[in-house]
Design a protein around this nucleic acid. Sequence first.
DNA 1: CGGCGAGTTGACTAGCGTCAAATGATGTGG
DNA 2: CCACATCATTTGACGCTAGTCAACTCGCCG
Lengths: 245, 245
Amino acid sequence: MPVAVSVGEMDLRCATCPVHHHAVCQALGGLYLHELAGIMTHRHFEAGTEIVHQGETSNLFGIIASGVVKLTRLLPDGRQHIVCLLSETDCIGDVFSAESHDNAMCVTDVELCCFHRKQFDEIVKSHPTLGHHLLQRVTVDLEEARQWLTALGRKKAVEKVAMFIVWMWNEEHEHCLHAPRRVNDMMLHFPFSREEIADFLGLTLETVSRCIGKLDVDRVITLLNAKCIEIRDLDRLRQIAESDI
Amino acid sequence: MPVAVSVGEMDLRCATCPVHHHAVCQALGGLYLHELAGIMTHRHFEAGTEIVHQGETSNLFGIIASGVVKLTRLLPDGRQHIVCLLSETDCIGDVFSAESHDNAMCVTDVELCCFHRKQFDEIVKSHPTLGHHLLQRVTVDLEEARQWLTALGRKKAVEKVAMFIVWMWNEEHEHCLHAPRRVNDMMLHFPFSREEIADFLGLTLETVSRCIGKLDVDRVITLLNAKCIEIRDLDRLRQIAESDI
DNA sequence: CGGCGAGTTGACTAGCGTCAAATGATGTGG
DNA sequence: CCACATCATTTGACGCTAGTCAACTCGCCG
């Protein structure tokens, strides 16, 4: 449901948006941000909600303002896989095709800047810089997908889990949108269940649990509670993640 | 080594190129093709040759005119994975980053249209349509990577192999650059060794061999020789590939 | 306090990897 | 043209990693 705002406010929404300097929309200068704001609607989704359904047509192109979204695929027999985890400044949807390849589900509560696919594409076409930024972002996504491809194809369970923890830690420390946090902060809160981690890494939740347990016993991490760990030895964790002996 | 040609010939190279109507360069009209041809060099690589080395800086941006290229990643302990298989009209290299994430190796002999990364990016920036086409292509690559991600994460060995065969068949029948071939042609010649298929699917060569053997015994395919199969029951092969019971 | 879902732990199993030998394909030199 | 070497592929025997199934614990909330 679109939030009710006055026209004056609407014009400012993109210019005052906390993420716009880091998302693809940074490509548009102040003048053109109005244009974007004009076709944008802000929406809120509760954790667990589905934003887009796999296989259905959807004209949504969204930019995440806050929260975490998982893109999942379901095989006919019920096996599930998470192909991508998205957070603030990431994009949902494909400018080119209306048919969604995957489910988009909210892992946490989500604030989403929503556009109509074609309207957004029009703006992309008329603003090459935006197109260029979009290209850059999809290129990064592709690179990340390939990194996980090698992990799923060739790494052992512990290595995958170590890699996932390192990845989460990097995510936290790259974004730094919220508060400027200390870089030596080794505490890690995460919103994912064991099953979600498993579905992402191509494992079962039991195996994920055992691997986290092993890293805890080996004193690489400390398991504070189910969704909070402290990294005790980041270098070793990285070595394990990289399969570096 | 650049092929020696006269200036007049050079100007025409892109316009007369057999793949240019299907590659990203299709975005450029006749006038601008000269521009592209001006900064392009044609190179030939033998099967087994390395085009780009993982981790090294490379300013190559290439479009494959003919042949098959594999992008591989090597883990510190020697395990290897193929993250992507490329053929005619596909692009090698990343416009944005000079450091290569992966090895690019020739599976067959390869003809490559080579550009300097930055020069190509300049043309992309000045020709939004080209940028748009590039975006479209990277988007497709991303979608394909995610398809393989679910396969590596959640599918069984036979399902992966079936999927690979279906994929090869689709590739053959999509391109159709060479000769317009009969669509009911169920013969499939492929250039990959068992080890390459294994490195792509996250299996071992023995497992790939056994799975192909099983599909042969089950009369879904007929193994004519190591690198040539006939598909006997495409529907069933697709069902197996999709894990559809 | 009891019920519920998430996570952990244990016992057992199956699928795939590992190692090794056999077979087949291809090429080379006498 | 054959003998031989070499490499890719197949096949077999065995072991290990991660999956399966089930019991148990923990934290949370009514």
